[in-house]
Structures are given as C-alpha cells and as structure tokens.
Design a protein around this nucleic acid. Structure first.
Length: 917
DNA sequence: GACTCCCGCCAAAGC
DNA sequence: GCTTTGGCGGGAGTC
C-alpha cells in the first residue's frame, strides 16, 4: 500500500516539472525510484486537476534525464524497482529511449517478482484497468494544454511525443484526438502533428452541431426510438427494423460527413475517408443528440441505434450494436474528461440504463438569424462565423439537403465522393513541411479580436440601455403601485444572471412570485427594446416565464429560474450518477472553467431547455391533435395535464371560441383604460411624455399594448400577411425608437380569428396560463389556453390599433389547410373559424414527458403510432426557413428579408411545460 | 451476467 | 513499401 502511494507521487513528479522541485528537495529514501515515470495511480487525476488551469505547458514537458543516483537499496525500494520494471510500458519506454539494454534483465526481474509476490499482490501491483482508462488518459492529455491557448504560443501536438509522455500506445492517442477533432479542439496539421485550439472553437462548434442536429431531426429520431422501445422490444431483424430503416431513410441520413468549421476545413485529409464510421463523425453525432434533446440526457442505447440507423440499417445486428456501444464509450470517456457530459443512469420500467447527461455549456440555437447577432457576439465569440459555419456544415452534412425535395441518386454518390476526395486531396493534403495554420489559427485570433471589440461596444451600449430601463422600471413601479399594486415589478427582480444581461442587453426581469396576486414578468425584446410583460397568477408560480434567445416566451417549470435544471431532472428523470450528480461541480476545481462557461450561458440554457421541450411537446401535440376526437375543450386542458389525453375539438370548442372572442373584446376595452390610466399616472409622476412615455409603454408591465400587427392565433398557426398598418403605428415614436422598430421585421401574422386578447391585471388574477407562447413577431396561444391569455406589451404597437388583425385571405387558408393535409388540394375553404376545429391543442403537450422521462409512467396506449404521412406533414411544418422550430430563424435572414414569405405557413413553438411536479 | 472499455490486429490511407 | 491512421471486435476487468 505504501508503494502505491509512492507511485502517485512518482507520476506527478515525472510528468510535471512543477513537482520535480519537491522531488529534488526530498529526502525521501526512495528518491531514485521517483525518477522513473510510472503509470498514474488513481490519484493522478486530482493532481492533474490542480495543475491544469493555468500552468499548462504548451509543449511536451521536458523529460527528466537525470540518472538516478545510487541511493542505498532497501528491500522495499528493491521491490518497487522490480514492480516498476515489470511494467510493459516502462519497458517499452526504455526501449524507445535506447536506454534499455537489459530487457532480459527486466523480464527476469518481472518473473522474479511474480515468483516473489503472490498472485494477488502481483495483480495489485499492476495498474488497474481504471487507471488505464481512456478518460483518465484524456485527462492527462488535456492537462498538457491550456483551455484557451494564445496563438502566440506553440500549440502543436506531436502524437508520438504525447504517446511517449503518457506511456500509452499511439492508438489510444488517436482515440482522444479524434474526439477532440470532432469538437475542433485540435486540428490535424500534418502527419503525426496536430494543432491545439483548446476551447476557443467549442462554442461555435456546439452551436453548429446543434443546428445540424436540429436539421437532422435528431429529436424526432430519439422520440421515435423511444416510442418504439415502449411499444415493442427492439428486435434485431424484424419488421421493426425495416420500419426504422424507412424512417431513417426518409430523413436522408444515409450520407453524413464530418462537420467542419470555416477556417478548419479539410485540415485532416483522412477526415472523410472513412467518414460514415469515423470516430469523429460519431462523436459529433453523439454531441448533437445531447444538444437537441430535452432533457439533455442520452442513453447509450438510443445513441447507438441512431448512429447505426444512419449507417446501415440492414446490418442492424447485435454485433454492430455492441461495436457502436464500444465506440460510444470511447467517445463518452473523452467527452467526460472534457466535462461536457457526465455519466448517469436512467431508471425506467425495464431497469437501469447507462446514459450520459450533457454538462457542457448550453448552446444558443441560432443567433445569427436574429438581430441579436451583435449582442450575442458579446457573449459568444465567433458568433458571426456561425452562419457560414452553419451553412457549411449543412452542406457538408446534408449535401442533398440543399434541395430537400430532391434526393441524390445512389449511383451519383460515389461520383460525388470521388470528386470530393480529389478536391480534398488537392486542398488539404497534410504533408510536410508542416502547414502553419494560417487560416485556422490566425482566423481564430483575428476574428475573435474583432468580435470582441464589437462585443464590448455592444455590451457597453446595451448596458446603458439596460440601466435606463431599470430606472424606468423603478419609476414605473412607483407610479403604477398606486394604480395597480399587482403590477409593480419588484425592484430586485429575480433576474437571469448578469451574464445574460450583457447578452440580452435588456433588463430581463423574470420576477419572483410576488406577494401580490399577480406576478409580472418582464421580457425584453432585444430587437427593439420591446418588452413583454406576463402576469402570472400565484397559482402558477411554478411556471415562471423567462426569455428565450429565440424570442420565445416559455413557461418554465419553477419559480426559481436557477432551479430549472433540478426541477426538470426531478420531473423528467430519475437520474442517478455514479458519483453523485453534483460532485464534479462542487468539488472539482477544474470545473471552475466549465462552471464559468455555464454561468455565462445558463440563462439561455434554461429558456432553451424549455424551447427544446416545447419542440418535443409541440410535435406530440400536433400528432395527437390530429388524432384527437371528442374530448371536451374545456376539460381537456386540465385533463390532459393530468392524464396526457389528447385535446378536443368540435362544437364545444367553437362555443368556447365564440365566448372567448366576446370576452376579449371586453378585455380590450378594459385594457385600454388601464393603459391610459397608467400612463396618466406616469405623467403625474413626472415621467416624460414623449420618448420616455413610449419607453414606458415598452417596459412597463402594465402597458398591455397588444401588438397591432400581432394577433392571437388560437389555432397556433401564424400566417404572414402584408404589413399595411405598421408604419402608421410608428408615428408616435421618437426617431431613436423608430430605428429600433424598423429593425423589426414587419411581417404581419394574423389569424382567421382576428383580434386581440386584452386582459387587465385584475382579470389576470383569475386566469390560468397553461400554455402560451410569445415572440416579438407573434403570439401564439393554444386554443385551450386562450381564455387564459396573458397580457403582452409591445411598444411598437399601438394598443388601440387592432386594425391589422386581419383575416387572411382564403387562399392562404386553403394553403394552410392543404399543407396540413387536412383538406385535399383544390378544395377551397372560406376564411372562417374553420381552423378552430383543427387547432393544435396544447393538451398533449406534456405527453412528450413520457419519452423524456423514462421514469414517468408511460402511457403507451395514448401514444398512437405515427403514420408516415403524418410524420411527413409534421416534418414539413416544423421545417421553418431558418431551421426547425426557431422563431428567430425567420425574423431576419441574412439578406435582411423575412425568412418567411407570403403564404408560408409557420407553426410556432407552442408551449409546453406543464410542470405538475 | 451485464456492463465497460482496453487492447491490439489489420486494413485503408498517406507519404 | 513503409508509416500513419483508425475500424473493429475479442475478451478481460468491474459492477
């Protein structure tokens, strides 16, 4: 036992000169042994952990060459020497150094040792399997390089050298490097030579992977697999596989390549040589699964099935499955070392399953497509590159996806591959002399610096705005407190962490449940500084709404925003980690970096999680809605929450809708009165009439101006309409604000059921908000939640102006219905509340819990099998121009136009979280 | 017995 | 033709 501890020190000392100082001053009798680098012990991890953050050698640390002094040999030291000599790694190392002329002696020593020690003792003397794990090796590898290397430093990696230093065969280093390469943390420069980029590219890569994963419909695939799991046991060669093959085939997954980032393309000539099975590609796909799923937990089984599905479904046999699992373990070990994932176990009906949970930074869905870009730049470096990156990745990953309606003929694939390979060879053959990474490293350094400048500027400006807004809020709070106490935002709202402020550049007021009966929630609109206010009834304190970077308002399943994850976990999965969920975060000092990163991105992550969930829920909702029959609308919401039943349609729904429309007219009037009252109050308090008043409208929660160009659309669909009234609405704004307003896309979204849903604060006390969804461009309220529609404010809209609540033309409606497959092509449908009967209900939104929460009771019978046609319809609908389910994606395309054109049907994210935990 | 994943063979790709 | 890269699966260690 004693010598084992000694080993720990030996490893550290030999690997890190940092420790050699101690060694040199040590009077420890076994000093001579300390000179021999041995394999790490279990404690080496912590040692590495402490070393890694700052003092990382950029290059291979010089190996200690000193010859061990001839210290007196004791029986113990002799034994230790024998043990160390017995190590094959040590032997091979000695051989490589040419210092080992006495191999036979060593072997003899080993033999001798074996004889001397009992079997158990000898086994104990060998490094345990854990100590040789890829994860630990990866830790050692990572410890050699800084997380954020400066380009001025030497960041090259020589595989041979590393393998030697780490006492492992090169094969293992390849495993690590391949995974790191998939995250663009390293890139291949030449034979045996890589460049270390650290985490500089990580955010960008993850964004890209997420985007690609979304486009690849991984969420749906996961869902599909999970659903099937519950329906049947996965059999190897049955009809189910064929079915699955068809599904995957229909998703055009047959051809997938390595996702590349701009400036890092084709750096590895072999990158795509075995692309379909490459560890790199597998690693990227694996990461994608985490990024697109909610919760971000992926079981190995599901991952393997998806990965196999993309390969050769016809060969979906056990051995293939086992192999995939093996590879996934390899990848997971590296990702774990990077602290991007953590091993967990999900408990479900069939038992405990190994899975991994994403613990890395949350990823913005797609910032570039929104006007947030400049702002987000302050937050995420390289963000401006992400577009190109995304496009590039899309091209790389889904070459045939550019025109989704066309599929490349298999016979052409080979030709294309051949051409691509040729081009690759020409462009990127990694040959000697070593290619200095001009495009990569320099871009990496140049772009970030520019972006950083932009970021600082944006941040500065936005902080200014934020301050103003805060001041206004306080003023307003005082002002409105008199007229409407419920609406007063708390001076210290439970806001998102500061990091988000800098990003959102708006006071994000996710307010705590106040003592008043209504909890206001301010939601900034980053485009224009418009905020939304949502008032929650205390009974819904668990459903706090926060801001989503994609401009979606998503109720979150808890009052404490920072507690979302835990609640989610609680609700969704009974997860047990092997070492405790919080262990790493709490205890591991190395985690500070990840923690920091996470701190920066967490606000987004939360809302985004909800976004993710909403996507999943929405999918289920759409499916179920189409199958729903005769359940009553009034009861369906509550029932569905509890029982996950499909929503209802029919006469009762129509009745409800009629009532609703009447109600909301009344509410509109009340709302106007409230607004006027509040503004008058502000006037009395000395708040400037002109600009500030307008601002007030933006920021005051009581300014329940219903966007004139935004209309509640009970059906959940938004149909873009020509904007005709918007400019008129801007008349009252200052130039400054006009500018902000103009930055908005003026697409009008309307509903067959035109109108607004004004709700006064007092009325809100009584309403529930089971499901809603708000974006700066649209507001969607599920039919079942319409009566509970929250109030909204949007400064760029005149509260009294509802004229733009237009009824879409019948042609648009026809288009909609036909696109839905609900009416045959060519059958005209008048613009009437027909859609009411086909609205997507939020009823079943929580159904996807069943898949996400394997621990929850699965209500398999209520999850009907999804027909292919419906699947297709669903896919089509969720394929928004900028990506699936991203509102932001159509708000501003790179060309400055609306990404959604006339006649385009957009099915919005519809909410979601019924957290009844 | 299931889960993990090390290990090294060997073929493809690179030089 | 040699070297590098990495897919792959046997099988051992661990739980």
């Amino acid at each position: 036992m004693d010598y084992v501890q000694c080993y720990c020190f030996q490893f550290s000392a030999s690997q890190f000169p940092f420790f050699l100082v101690q060694e040199n001053h040590s009077s420890e009798p076994y000093r001579s042994i300390l000179k021999t680098p041995l394999k790490q012990s279990a404690t080496s991890h912590s040692a590495l952990t402490e070393i890694q953050p700052d003092c990382q050698p950029l290059t291979t640390p010089p190996k200690p060459k000193e010859i061990p002094p001839a210290d007196p040999w004791t029986p113990t030291s002799n034994l230790k020497m024998l043990i160390s000599a017995a190590s094959p790694e040590i032997r091979s190392r000695e051989q490589r150094r040419g210092l080992s002329d006495n191999t036979s002696e060593v072997l003899q020593a080993k033999h001798c040792l074996q004889e001397q020690l009992s079997g158990d003792e000898y086994e104990k003397s060998q490094p345990s399997r854990k100590e040789k794990s890829l994860g630990l090796l990866c830790h050692k590898f990572l410890a050699r390089y800084p997380n954020y290397p400066s380009t001025a430093e030497n960041n090259y990696i020589c595989l041979d050298e590393v393998a030697e230093e780490l006492n492992v065969e090169r094969r293992r280093i390849y495993d690590i490097v391949n995974v790191l390469e998939s995250l663009h943390m390293v890139s291949r420069l030449a034979k045996n030579r890589y460049a270390w980029h650290g985490r500089h590219n990580l955010t960008k890569t993850l964004q890209t992977l997420k985007k690609v994963g979304e486009e690849n419909k991984y969420t749906q695939q996961i869902q599909m697999i999970k659903n099937r799991e519950y329906e049947h046991e996965f059999d190897t060669d049955g009809e189910r596989n064929e079915e699955m093959a068809r599904s995957f085939g229909s998703n055009e997954h047959s051809e997938m390549c390595f996702v590349e980032l701009p400036g890092m393309e084709f750096r590895a000539a072999s990158v795509n040589s075995r692309k379909d099975k490459s560890l790199r590609v597998m690693s990227q796909k694996f990461v994608m699964l985490f990024l697109v799923s909610t919760p971000q937990i992926v079981s190995l089984e599901v991952a393997a099935k998806i990965l196999i599905g993309e390969d050769q479904l016809e060969d979906l046999d056990k051995s293939k499955f086992k192999t995939k699992i093996r590879r996934l373990y390899d990848i997971a070990n590296v990702l774990s070392s990077l602290e991007l994932i953590k091993k967990v176990h999900v408990t479900e009906e069939r038992g405990r399953k190994p899975a991994f949970k994403w613990t890395g930074p949350e990823v913005l869905p797609n910032v570039r497509d929104t006007k947030l870009e400049a702002t987000a730049t302050a937050w995420v470096p390289h963000i401006s590159d992400s577009i190109t990156s995304k496009e590039q990745c899309s091209k790389n990953l889904f070459p045939s996806r550019v025109k989704q309606s066309f599929t490349r003929h298999p016979s052409l694939i080979k030709l294309v591959k051949s051409i691509e390979n040729d081009r690759r060879k020409i462009q990127s053959a990694p040959t000697s002399p070593v290619k200095i990474s001009t495009s990569s490293d320099q871009n990496l350094s140049a772009v970030p610096s520019k972006m950083a400048q932009l970021a600082v500027i944006s941040k500065h400006q936005l902080e200014g705005q934020s301050k103003k807004a805060k001041e206004m809020k306080l003023k307003l709070a005082l002002a409105c407190n008199q007229s409407s106490p419920e609406a007063v935002p708390k001076p210290e709202p439970r806001t998102a962490p500061p990091a988000q402020k800098s990003v959102l550049a708006q006071p994000l007021g996710v307010l705590p449940p106040s003592h008043s009966s209504v909890s206001p929630v301010m939601l900034p609109h980053t485009h224009s500084g418009v905020s939304y206010a949502i008032y929650l009834h205390p009974s819904q304190a668990h459903t706090v709404t926060t801001y989503s970077p994609s401009f979606m308002l998503q109720p979150l399943p808890c009052a404490n925003v920072t507690g979302i994850k835990s609640i989610n976990s609680k609700v969704l999965n009974k997860i047990t980690t092997e070492e405790g969920d919080n262990h790493i975060a709490k205890d591991d000092p190395r985690n500070s970096l990840t923690a920091n990163e996470r701190q920066t991105v967490q606000p987004e992550s939360m809302s985004h999680k909800c976004l993710k969930r909403s996507q999943a829920l929405q999918e289920n909702s759409l499916i179920k809605k189409c199958r729903s029959d005769d359940k009553s609308l009034a009861t369906s919401l509550g029932e569905s929450i509890k029982n996950e039943r499909p929503p209802s349609n029919g006469l009762q729904m129509n009745h409800e809708m009629d009532n609703f429309q009447k109600e909301r007219q009344n509410k509109a009037e009340k709302l106007d009165q409230n607004v006027a009252s509040c503004c008058d109050q502000c006037k009395r308090e000395g708040i400037p009439e002109d600009e500030d008043r307008t601002k007030t409208k933006q920021e005051i929660p009581m300014a329940f101006a219903i966007p004139a160009h935004e209309t509640f659309f009970p059906s959940g669909y938004l149909i873009p309409l020509p904007q005709s009234t918007h400019h008129g609405n801007q008349a009252g704004f200052s130039n400054k604000e006009k500018a902000g307003i103009c930055s908005l896309q003026h697409t009008t979204y309307s509903s067959p059921i035109a109108g607004v849903i004004p709700v006064t604060a007092s009325e809100l006390k009584a309403v529930n908000i089971p499901a809603f969804h708000i974006t700066p461009l649209n507001i969607m309220v599920s039919p079942t939640s319409i009566a509970a529609a929250p109030v909204l404010s949007n400064s760029c809209l005149n509260s009294s102006n509802t004229s733009s609540a237009q009824t879409p033309s019948s042609s648009v409606l026809n288009f909609t219905l036909q696109h839905l497959g609900l009416i045959p092509a060519g059958v005209p449908v008048p613009a009437s509340p027909v859609l009411q009967r086909m609205t997507v209900s939020s009823k079943s939104e929580n159904v996807s819990h069943s898949s996400e929460n394997m621990n929850l009771k699965e209500e398999k019978p209520s999850v009907p099998k999804e027909p292919q046609e419906l699947q297709t319809v669903k896919e089509n609908f969720f394929r928004t121009p900028g990506g699936p389910n991203t509102v932001s994606s159509f708000s501003a395309n790179s060309d400055g136009t609306d990404g959604i054109s006339q006649g385009t049907l957009y099915i919005p994210q519809r909410k979601l979280e019924v957290s009844e935990d």
